[in-house]
C-alpha cells in the first residue's frame, strides 16, 4: 500500500499546486528567518543610552583667550581652543601649497567665530592625543610618532596623513556650541 516512500509517489498530483504550496511555505519561512535575523544583528548597534549622547552641547564661556580644554564627545577627546589673534594670523598666513592636506583656516572654523577651534584630539596617524602649544608650528605635537600640527590643527610634518578632524558642530549662540 505504501511500499514506496519517495516523493515520486505524489507525482500524479497536480504539480503546480504542490509546488506553489512548497514555494509559499519556503518563502514565508525565509521572511520569518530574515525578520528574526535583523534584531539579532541590530542589537549590536549603539544602544539608546549611547545614542542619547551622540549630540552634546558645550558652553564656551569659561574658556579664556589662549586657553584650551579637552571634552569628551562620543567617547573621543575633543580639543576646544580659544585661539589668540597671533595664532589665527599665523594660521591664515600659511600658503596652501605648503600643506600636506590643504585646507584654509576658514574651512576649519565657523564664520564669525574664527577664534574657536574644535577638533577631535586623536592624531590622524595612529590615534594618540597630541600635546598642545608645542611642536615646530606652535600648534600641537604628537609625541608617539612625531607629527607636528599648526595653530589650525593642520598636519605640517611627520607621519600623519591628514589634519586633525573637525567634528560636525554649530554655534547655537555666541557661547554655546552643539557637537554632533
Amino acid at each position: 500500500m505504501d511500499g514506496d516512500h519517495t516523493l515520486a509517489t505524489h507525482a500524479e498530483k497536480p504539480a503546480t499546486r504542490r509546488d506553489f504550496l512548497y514555494v509559499a511555505t519556503g518563502a514565508v519561512a525565509a521572511v520569518g528567518g530574515a525578520a528574526v535575523a535583523w534584531p539579532l544583528i541590530n542589537q549590536l548597534n549603539p544602544d539608546a543610552s549611547t545614542l542619547a549622547l551622540a549630540t552634546i552641547e558645550f558652553n564656551l564661556s569659561g574658556i579664556e583667550e589662549g586657553q584650551s580644554v579637552t571634552i569628551t564627545w562620543r567617547g573621543l577627546p575633543v580639543f576646544v581652543r580659544n585661539r589668540t589673534q597671533a595664532e589665527i594670523d599665523e594660521a591664515k598666513a600659511v600658503p596652501l601649497s605648503e600643506l600636506k592636506d590643504p585646507e584654509t583656516d576658514e574651512e576649519r572654523t565657523k564664520p564669525g567665530h574664527e577664534q574657536w577651534l574644535v577638533m577631535i584630539a586623536n592624531c590622524t596617524h595612529l590615534g594618540c592625543v597630541p600635546v598642545g602649544e608645542s611642536g615646530d608650528f606652535d600648534g600641537w605635537f604628537c609625541p608617539c610618532h612625531g607629527s607636528h600640527y599648526d595653530t589650525a590643527g593642520r598636519i605640517r610634518r611627520g607621519p600623519a596623513p591628514l589634519n586633525l578632524v573637525v567634528p560636525p558642530y554649530e554655534f547655537l549662540s555666541d557661547t554655546l556650541i552643539q557637537i554632533g
Binding site: H10, K13, T25, V28, A29
Partner: peptide, 15 residues
C-alpha cells in the same frame, strides 16, 4: 506559517 507548515506536512505525508 503554522497553517502553511501543516498543509505542507500533510501533503508530504499523503499516501
Amino acid at each position: 506559517f503554522a497553517g502553511l507548515m501543516w498543509a505542507t506536512k500533510t501533503r508530504i505525508w499523503k499516501g
